[in-house]
Design a protein around this nucleic acid. Structure first.
Lengths: 334, 334
DNA sequence: ATCTTATTTGTAAACGATTACAATAAGTTT
DNA sequence: AAACTTATTGTAATCGTTTACAAATAAGAT
């Protein structure tokens, strides 16, 4: 593998000149530039990024820390981040925290060790626990869950509004006794719960604690929570879950109880997935603009890398309500 | 951020000694080692991996190049690779090729530029196109699709056998006119097709070209292919698809045609997904040991990094047939 | 032709680790 | 105690870039 020295020798110039040609510096005579470019081509020279990083004290790598890459929402995000990053010449380092703050902290250190230019993070908790580390070192953009008191760039969904519209849709279709299964420990779950409660109140209904569950945002927890709700003396007419994993679990529970959707119980959720339109009836949901979230987060990050002192921004995107069969107008039967 | 020099100064030793302590070299007196460790702790020193990489001419990063991270199969793989890599102190760089050989080639160069220790690759084609680049530079492990004439470590499914068993299962349950929708351009699709044809022959049936389709391994292509098959004058009694995306498309087509599964048409596929057991009836499929594939591939890769001249290995794993409702015994009706 | 000024090029010092080699200190053997 | 071996430590080169600074060259002004 040819180094800059060999290119310099081949072109009869100093390494500084080669470096200037590489950086498109204006202070190189066209004749020399030609010679250098020819040597580069002939030797198939490619700059050593490690050496460059060492000198520049920064890499062209960004990190993406999500809670679980198997969650289709994060998968879609990661795809978008990856696309956008590579367009700008950045590589992507991927990490899973499994909702574990300890892992989050470990991976933030990994990022620091790797000298990443910045990190896109879906934080495990609403506090700024890892953020002290964050504030030193690299740029950060937070996605999906906000860290309320932190001065960081964020790209979030308008959770309250989305949950409000989703719940209102159920109410408009005649459902009254609506239960909510929310992801615990994140602002996202709480905000969506708030939107749900606002909608109920707007319809003159009082939220009951019995119908609201905060659980880990995973299939098994969704299953267990839904099962318990359906076993209540007075079971809910509709279930609202705050992500696709919880919905999958809830659906499993509904199937196991042998209930028909939506006649016996309706189901609505957040996040579009392959399966949401394949099951019968297809599931009504709030679709998040995942690709845009990932793209925007990456762009914000790279802007901050370029201009670290820029005031922080908070981008709030709207969700899209996709109405499908799982929440069809209710046929009152008693 | 403290460097090795400052640690050396604080401990009153040379940088060489600090480096030896870091590397657990036996040639350091306990007393000195203590002093160095104390300085490291006090200064919160963490070695600069970039500098280390430059010197070592190798990083502790591995690359994972898949055709689409949104395919749940690759998602599961990436999760396993990530887990295993981090356990060994390696980071993971992620890339999507979109089945595009050009992108594959670009990303292989990115990997080289990043000085990765090795790459896990699901190749876009069965030829060794990118492999010339591969052979120089870094370790490589190929997954999911084989490159027949290449001398590389591989972790693959026993595709012929799996498809054979899947098809035999259909035959045993009374299905005769079975169509196959296979992913094109990969050995995987072709091998699965071969297993399908072998099973037919074992039952005294002749494979017909009309019932075998090779298409891009994506939802839309699966949908289109299934639709055309179902529109045949003599439509198939069962559909076999070679991955979950094709299955999702086929299912969509079946729904659109208003056909009941499995009475009017059965559906079987490869790859377990969240939705395969949530749709009704749930889908019979061959489950790949995804986590094991990813883990094994990573282990093979790190072994090769440690010992580049080790003879290459080819690990073939068995799939597991999960029998569900979508292929229930056929009730003959005419 | 000479002096200034602007442009182009080269020299050499970083960046932060590792490691061959040399130097020193500590044990062993006679 | 001298000579030899072995264990420990330090010095300095190295990895491949970038860039401040100095030097050389070219261009412009008088």
């Amino acid at each position: 593998m040819a180094s800059i020295k060999e290119v310099a020798r081949a072109a009869g110039v100093s390494t500084a000149t080669v470096s200037r040609v590489l950086a498109n510096s204006p202070h190189v005579r066209p004749a020399l530039r030609e010679r250098v470019l020819k040597a580069i081509k002939e030797l198939e020279y490619r700059p050593n990024l490690i050496a460059r990083s060492l000198r520049a004290q920064q890499t062209t790598t960004i990190g993406l820390i999500v809670s679980d890459i198997r969650n289709p929402f994060f998968t879609a995000i990661s795809r978008a981040v990856e696309d956008t990053a590579y367009e700008e010449g950045y590589s992507l380092i991927l990490c899973n925290t499994d909702e574990d703050p300890k892992k989050e902290s470990i991976y933030l250190n990994v990022m620091r060790d790797a000298n990443v230019a910045g990190v896109i993070l879906s934080p495990t908790g609403p506090t700024a626990a890892g953020l002290r580390e964050l504030e030193t070192g690299f740029a950060v953009v937070v996605i999906d869950r906000s860290i309320p008191d932190a001065d960081v760039d964020m790209v979030l969904l308008d959770n309250v509004d989305s949950a409000y519209r989703l719940t209102r849709h159920l109410l408009e279709n005649g459902y009254r006794r609506i239960a909510a299964i929310c992801g615990e420990r994140s602002t996202t779950g709480r905000e969506r719960c708030a939107g749900y409660e606002q909608a109920l109140r707007a319809y003159g209904l009082l939220p009951t604690a019995e119908l609201v569950r905060f659980v880990p945002p995973q299939i098994e927890a969704g299953y267990a929570a839904a099962l318990r709700l359906l076993e209540l003396p007075e079971p809910p007419e509709a279930l609202l879950t705050t992500n696709s994993l919880l919905a999958a679990g809830a659906l499993e529970a509904i199937r196991e109880r042998g209930l028909r959707i939506p006649d016996e119980v309706a189901l609505v959720t957040f996040d579009e997935t392959t399966w949401a339109s394949l099951v019968q009836p297809p599931i009504t949901l709030i679709e998040q603009p995942t690709y845009e979230i990932g793209k925007t987060a990456t762009e914000l990050l790279l802007q901050r890398v370029a201009e670290p002192e820029r005031p922080t921004r908070r981008v709030i995107l709207k969700g899209r309500l996709l109405v499908r069969g799982s929440s069809a107008p209710r046929v009152r039967c008693g």
